[in-house]
Structures are given as structure tokens and as C-alpha cells.
Simulated assay, not measured.
Amino acid sequence: MDTIADLRQFGGADVYLRSCPSRGVLDVIGSKWTVLIVPALIDRPLRFGELRRRLDGITQKSLTQALRQLERDGFVNRTQFPTIPPRVDYALTPLGRRAADLLSSIRDWAQDNLVEVLTARAAYDTRPAEPPFPPPGHAEAP
């Protein structure tokens, strides 16, 4: 499939072009933590600590960075309440809700197909090593 040199003149984007800003959006959506954070917020806003407990293995730094990026990109709203101790909630925006539907599907697919992927990995990892390309003694055509 060919890409058009510049779709901005037509009001669109082409992610296959290296200069297209939509690649930055894909970077955010494709992040391991985005795929987990956004769907975790579907049912209700969560506090930082609740999110951290829900996302087993995420560091405080990684969660902070991911939430800042998601807020910057309009996926998440951060609401700080004037209480002691301070309370901060994270909730999905309408844009975040649309992304959550997509990311939930990806998460479900990963869980539903885990056995098949692990089986394929094991088969790949146990197959004999392939000879280097081109095979030794093979002369390349001029």
C-alpha cells in the first residue's frame, strides 16, 4: 500500500509517514502501561495508590510518567481535592473512554491467546538453528 506524501492538505494523517504526528499517538497507545492503565479506569476514577496496587509491578516513577503523558494527551483527567492528606483522582476523559474500549479488546485478546503464543514461542525456541544467509560457499549472483 503506497502512502500519499502529505495527507495534511486533505485534512488527514498517514501513520506510515515518519513525519506524521500520529506516530506519537501510537507510541502512547502502544505503551505497556497505557494498555493497562486506561482500561483500569473504565469503571470509576481511581487514586494513585489504587492504580499502583492494581498494576502489579509498576514503579511509582513509571506510573507517574504514564499518568502525566495520558493527562497531557487528553486521555485522563487529574483532580486534586483540598483534603488532608491530599487526594488525587484519575478519571478517563471521553477520548480516554474511546481508547479504553480498544485497549480492553487488546488486553482480552492477549489473555485469550496466551497459550497459543506461549506454544508458538516454545516451538520456535526449540527448533534447530538456521544456517546463516547466504549459506557458506554460495556465491552471490553479480
Rank of each mutant, 00 (worst) to 15 (best):
R72T: 15
S22A: 13
L26R: 06
I37Q: 00
R44M: 02
D108Q: 15
D6Q: 10
G137N: 12
V88Y: 07
A129K: 14
A122H: 13
T3W: 13
C20G: 03
G24W: 03
Q69G: 03
D2C: 07
P128A: 13
T79N: 13
G74E: 02
P94R: 02
E71P: 03
L103M: 11
L114E: 07
T64P: 01
L95N: 05
L55V: 07
G24Q: 12
P86S: 11
Q80W: 03
L36Y: 04
N77E: 05
S31W: 00
D108F: 00
F75H: 00
T59R: 07
G12M: 05
S22F: 02
P86T: 11
G12V: 03
L7N: 08
L26T: 01
R127F: 09
M1W: 06
V25I: 15
L63R: 01
F75Q: 01
R47E: 12
S105Q: 14
R53H: 09
V38C: 04
T34W: 00
P132D: 09
P85C: 08
D6A: 12
P45L: 00
G96K: 04
T119F: 04
I4V: 14
R87V: 13
L36I: 02
D56K: 14
I37M: 00
A139V: 15
T126I: 07
V115Y: 02
D43A: 14
F81L: 15
L70K: 02
L41M: 01
F133C: 11
R72P: 03
A100K: 01
D125E: 15
H138V: 13
V38R: 02
G137I: 04
M1F: 08
R127Q: 15
I106Q: 10
Y124I: 11
D14T: 05
D27S: 14
V115R: 04
P86M: 11
R8I: 04
W109D: 10
L118G: 04
F81K: 10
P45S: 03
E130W: 09
R127C: 12
Y16C: 12
T79Q: 15
D108Y: 08
P85R: 03
L103G: 12
L55N: 09
A66M: 05
L114I: 01
Y16V: 08
Q69I: 06
E130M: 15
D73R: 09
S104H: 08
V25A: 11
A91R: 06
D112W: 00
S22K: 04
D6V: 08
V117A: 13
D73E: 13
R18F: 06
V15W: 01
E130I: 09
R121T: 11
P128G: 09
G24T: 06
R127E: 15
P132N: 09
V88T: 15
A139M: 07
T64W: 09
D27G: 14
P45W: 00
C20E: 03
Q9C: 05
